[in-house]
Design a binder for these strands. Structure first.
Length: 286
DNA sequence: CACGGAACCTGCCCGC
DNA sequence: TGCGGGCAGGTTCCGT
């Protein structure tokens, strides 16, 4: 599950349902899901049980289980990863295994299992010794706009130091984290900036405007439970968010711009789609 | 070192 | 009905 609001929805669900519980057993149904764990599947299965989850933390699109030992289990959902509780109904009965079940944790309290489900297998888990505070593999990720330590003016400066297009900078997780393809397009629409505007030519107010827009749109999306177009993006109880109805640009090709009525356009950019209003967001002349 | 594109996967939807 | 191409919310890695 992709961008910051959706990952934060998952994090909150994990805090509510997993914090305070001790892992009993781990089963790995696909080695690829733990490919980033240095010791491989066998080591992952062996090292995680016995730890109690103290907290679940997040930076950008990464989240991690902070264990009582000071270690961490780091997770990234990739394009299609989900955490799902299995056995949380009134009778505690487990459902059939999901087709894309990759990793399962059981707990010493005998309560619901935690399943990591991932269709496209870009996501995964790894154990990071001593990583409870900030796992090493997350060190290169910039703070996200919802982080108390987020410094917007520092990000403004970092963006203007780049020599690239504004959308590339927004998607660069070492500049500012948490923004993905949906919220980049939404923020650019709100700020009336074309995705290909050169970062070095933007004014500080331009960059500030798009960063404020990104913060606001992600905050609103979080309040709505995230954005989801289908069952691929759900919370730990399998429920979808409903922010899709609030999108102005993303996925709205040929539909009228909510500001000026001009049909929204879709361009291929960075091996993906960019949606924008050709009138409100003028293409820079190159 | 910074930048830009390809690669990594599975599944669905469309047109032929 | 079947097949090929395009597309999907992300990140890493490699060449320039």
């Amino acid at each position: 599950m992709p961008e910051l609001p959706e990952v934060e929805v998952v994090r909150r669900g994990l805090v509510a349902h997993v914090a305070g519980r001790t892992v009993a057993t781990v089963s790995v149904h696909s080695d690829r899901a733990v490919r980033r764990h240095p010791g491989g599947a066998a080591d992952f299965r062996a090292v995680v049980p016995g730890h109690r989850v103290e907290d679940v933390r997040r930076r950008g699109k990464y989240l991690w289980f902070a264990m009582d030992s000071g270690d961490a289990v780091l997770a990234h959902l990739g394009m299609s990863g989900q955490f799902r509780l299995n056995g949380s109904g009134p009778d505690g009965a487990r459902g059939p295994d999901h087709v894309h079940l990759r990793v399962r944790w059981s707990f010493t309290d005998g309560g619901p299992d935690l399943d990591f489900v991932d269709q496209r297998t870009f996501g995964g888990l790894q154990f990071v010794p001593g990583g409870a505070d900030l796992p090493d593999p997350v060190r290169h990720i910039a703070r996200d706009p919802l982080d108390p330590g987020y410094d917007q003016e520092a990000v403004v400066a970092a963006v203007r130091r780049r020599r690239t297009e504004i959308k590339r900078a927004l998607l660069d997780q070492t500049v500012v984290s948490g923004i993905g393809n949906i919220y980049a397009d939404e923020a650019l629409w709100l700020a009336r900036l074309h995705y290909a505007r050169r970062t070095e030519a933007l004014t500080r107010p331009d960059v500030r405007r798009v960063l404020v827009a990104a913060t606001e749109v992600m905050t609103a999306a979080l309040a709505a439970g995230g954005t989801s177009f289908d069952s691929l993006y759900v919370n730990v109880n399998g429920e979808s968010g409903y922010f899709e109805r609030s999108l102005h640009a993303y996925g709205r090709q040929d539909e009228p711009c909510d500001r000026c009525g001009t049909p929204i356009r879709r361009d291929a950019f960075m091996n993906r789609s960019s949606f924008y209003c050709p009138r409100c967001q003028r293409r820079p002349r190159s």
